[in-house]
């Protein structure tokens, strides 16, 4: 009986380990599955001789035109880049500034509270941000600038900035916190003030971590869907001013997939945009990860 029991136990252990292993590998599985299923849907396009060059270089996005549908995503790409760029222009200085304040200047209770507030901000759902852009910020922009519509590049940029700030702050703060205290002490003992420590010691020491923070913010902004869908006005054009409505890659998919006839060209092209997004964010995240790894190996 004891032998049987032991055998059973060994088998159970083996089984459990197998399950754990499988779960461990699941992340890889899912990444491949995501890529496969999206790419799979676009495959017939290439069999039909889809013009990939036009897809990437034309600014004409007229998928529903009955006469001559055009599938150029340049305007969408520019829209994504513009709104991301604007968001980063606002979020990076503020986010890194807040990270510096939290890690080097704020003390005790203030720090705890601010960190919790920023952490909570990170969880406000994107649809709520979109709602805020649409209902609150839009009218403000109209009132201040006199623009005909309030949902535009500027609106989307501000909303996206607010959304990506928590990531930048928390990753940036981690990067600053990871700088060994002995550096601060050394600089302090040489008579440096806190500000001098920040920009003469911490910035050089933590630059890759701070870069990673920015990249993660960029990744977040590029991939954001609901907020930009609701706040940017959804007009597939290359913007010429901050007050032009724009359209992004993500918003296009979200807005048009529901209406596109299943397995038509438009439908498949939307999946192809998904592939483009997947690749872009993959590259951004990979870079951020390598940058972080870079710091870690250098530390050792």
């Amino acid at each position: 009986m004891t032998d049987g029991w032991r055998l059973f136990k060994r088998a159970a252990e083996w089984l459990i380990e197998a399950v754990v292993r499988l779960c461990g590998w699941s992340a890889i599985l899912f990444i491949f599955a995501i890529f496969f299923f999206i790419f799979h849907k676009t495959w017939p396009l290439f069999a039909e001789g889809f013009d990939l060059r036009e897809f990437l270089t034309s600014a004409r996005w007229q998928p529903t035109s009955t006469v001559h549908p055009c599938y150029g995503i340049l305007a969408l790409l520019v829209g994504t880049l513009a709104v991301t760029g604007l968001a980063m222009a606002l979020a990076v200085p503020l986010g890194l500034g807040a990270a510096v304040y939290l890690s080097e200047f704020a003390g005790g209770k203030t720090k705890e509270i601010l960190k919790i507030v920023i952490e909570l901000l990170a969880t406000v759902p994107s649809v709520v941000w979109g709602f805020i852009g649409y209902m609150v910020l839009g009218p403000i922009i109209i009132a201040v600038t006199g623009a005909p519509v309030g949902v535009n590049l500027l609106n989307g940029g501000i909303i996206l900035a607010l959304m990506s700030v928590p990531v930048i702050v928390s990753v940036g703060e981690d990067a600053l916190k990871a700088v060994p205290d002995s550096y601060r002490e050394a600089a302090l003992a040489l008579g440096a003030s806190r500000w001098e420590i920040v920009y003469r010691v911490l910035f050089p020491a933590a630059k890759s971590g701070l870069l990673a923070a920015v990249l993660l913010g960029v990744g977040r902004a590029i991939g954001e869907t609901m907020a930009v869908l609701m706040a940017t006005g959804h007009a597939a054009q290359i913007p010429h001013s901050l007050l032009d409505p724009i359209c992004t890659l993500t918003a296009t998919i979200a807005a048009e997939l529901g209406e596109a006839p299943r397995d038509g060209t438009h439908y498949r092209v939307l999946f192809l945009i998904g592939v483009v997004l997947f690749v872009i964010t993959f590259i951004v995240n990979l870079t951020a990860d390598l940058v972080v790894k870079g710091i870690r190996t250098e530390k050792e």
Binding site: P180, S182, A186, A189, R200, V201
Partner: peptide
């Protein structure tokens, strides 16, 4: 300091 701590 006890441990050399040149700045990075």
């Amino acid at each position: 300091f006890q441990r050399p701590n040149p700045l990075p």
